Simulated assay, not measured.
Amino acid sequence: METFLLLMAEASAVNAELAEGNHGFGLNFDILETNLINLVIIIGVLFFFGRKVVGKTLSDRRERIEAAIVSAQKRATDAKAALEEQQQKLAQAQAEAEKIRNNAQENAKVAREKILATAATDIERMKETASQDLNAERDRAIAQLRQRVVSMALEKVESQLQTGVDNETQQKLIDRSIALLGGPS
């Protein structure tokens, strides 16, 4: 502060000498002429009131910075909690997806086994049906053949009877026909 006052005094002195026309260097110690009192009052007022304004400004700025820091910390805490919650949800979703995939694989195995069992049963049933159909068709063919043989034998017998077959030949024909038909021998 002393340096400031000294500089002010010198500036006043230089100003006063220039005004007088004297071009030399000197000091003016007249307090009233150098406006030193006015400068001290202005500096004092600025210091007194400026300190309050600057202090209030700095205090307001500090409060805003503290509020911003608190808000940022709260947002960081909220973001961290949200991140943890979402990570838990992700872990649950992954576990659920794994469970669903395992269930789907089990269901696919069960369905495959059912289909294979059903197919095997169907194949067996078809084989049995085909075998039964084949046996029935064979029996029918055999029956038709027997009937045809019988009718042919009867026709032959009738034709021979008409031509006159002796008793012994007739007996042999009858016995042979009965044997072919599956009767007693």
Rank of each mutant, 00 (worst) to 15 (best):
A93R: 03
A93F: 02
Q94S: 06
Q94L: 05
Q94T: 07
Q94D: 07
E96S: 04
E96I: 03
E96P: 00
E96N: 03
A97V: 09
A97W: 05
K99T: 03
K99V: 01
I100W: 06
I100A: 11
I100Q: 12
R101K: 13
R101S: 10
R101N: 08
N102E: 14
N103Q: 15
A104H: 08
A104V: 04
Q105K: 14
Q105P: 01
Q105L: 13
Q105H: 10
N107S: 06
A108E: 09
A108W: 04
V110M: 04
V110S: 03
V110H: 04
V110C: 00
A111L: 07
A111M: 04
R112L: 14
R112Y: 10
E113R: 13
E113D: 11
E113V: 03
K114Y: 03
K114E: 08
K114L: 10
L116D: 10
L116R: 09
T118N: 14
A119S: 07
A119E: 14
T121L: 14
I123V: 09
I123M: 11
E124D: 14
E124K: 15
E124H: 09
R125T: 10
R125P: 01
R125V: 09
M126A: 15
M126Q: 14
K127T: 11
K127C: 05
T129S: 14
T129L: 15
A130N: 07
A130L: 12
A130D: 02
A130Q: 08
S131C: 07
S131G: 12
Q132F: 09
Q132R: 15
Q132H: 11
D133F: 11
D133Q: 15
L134C: 06
A136S: 11
A136F: 06
A136T: 08
E137Q: 12
E137G: 02
R138E: 02
R138S: 03
D139H: 05
R140W: 05
R140I: 01
A141T: 08
I142T: 12
I142E: 15
A143F: 02
A143N: 12
Q144R: 10
L145I: 05
L145E: 08
R146D: 11
R146C: 02
R146S: 06
R148E: 14
R148I: 05
R148D: 13
V149N: 05
V150I: 09
V150A: 13
S151C: 01
S151F: 04
S151P: 00
S151V: 03
M152L: 15
M152I: 14
M152P: 01
A153D: 01
A153C: 00
A153Y: 00
L154N: 13
L154P: 00
L154M: 08
L154F: 04
L154H: 05
K156F: 06
K156S: 07
V157E: 12
V157M: 14
V157R: 09
V157W: 05
E158P: 00
E158R: 10
S159A: 15
S159T: 09
Q160I: 01
Q160H: 06
L161P: 02
Q162G: 07
T163F: 13
T163Y: 13
V165S: 06
V165R: 02
V165Q: 07
D166G: 06
D166F: 01
N167C: 00
N167G: 03
